[in-house]
Amino acid sequence: MSHDPLADVIGPDDPGSPYDADSLLIGDDAHWAFGTDFEDPLAGVDTTLPDGVDPAELAEYCLMLGDDALVLSQRLSEWCSRAPDLEEDVALANIALDLLGQARLLLARAAAADPGCVPDLPPSSPVPPEDALAFFRDDREFRNVHLAEAPRGDFGEAVTRLVLLSSWRLALLGRLRESSDPVLAAIAAKGVAEVTYHRDYAARWFVTLARGTDESRRRLASAIAVLWPLVPELFAAHDIEVRVAEAGAGVEPAAVLDEVTGVLDQVFDAAGLERPAIDLRPHARQRGRDGVHTEAMGLLLAEMQVVARAHPTGVW
């Protein structure tokens, strides 16, 4: 047996060392310990508000970014066990998990900034604020863009939606790293590294489908036709976004238009497709940021919220 060069670095398997084989998994009682009492995703984080930002407006802004992530995460989760192969199933679930984590932090930040935005629940309910926001708001109270809620569609639509939303979200999060709200800046900095992987993954599949078979190219073209009318909303600023951006805590969506179209042009060029123009006239916009949603959103929420709503004081 050859000399193990790693033994010099980590040493032999001393009993009692964390790398002792008996300490791993089976012999480690601590690994199976549960039962501490708090679940706050911002436990110990200083949530003091920055100067010059209205707490309710910052909360609503965090709901917008959080709801985009939550609703897209729920849509992507629908691919579990339905993707074309196991690797894509795992990839889509991983992306959904990253987005769910971002949503959890953003909704918790909203609740910490303005506790008044959290739905009332019975005093005996153990539901934490970010879960109350996710599971006990009606569709009119959700602030996500329509592109996140659009029906699942086929794999071509999943890929196209992810190219569009991750290109846009990455541009927003990149700028939010400089937010005057240190909590939002920290959430954005983590998100940038994650969404970079999401965008690259989706963009590679976009090119693969476009340059694949006649059928995959036809499906992709159809996905673009279905989803493109929902793109203008990404760049239409809501009053809250404008004011939070002016206060230094947010980003005006119009500010990322050039960056996003630059990325989309690269993707469409590589795919050998022409990128449609983005119609920025006001009448072309959807109004998800105002709480106006499609029928698909109601069905999505029904599935996502049914268990929590049936057991508002449940513990498991």
Partner: peptide, 17 residues
């Protein structure tokens, strides 16, 4: 990662240890 599902287990393991 933001969505790391192991945070609660890490915390419980630390407290227990």
């Amino acid at each position: 990662y933001s969505g790391c599902p192991a945070m609660a287990t890490m915390r419980d393991d630390l407290v227990h240890r």
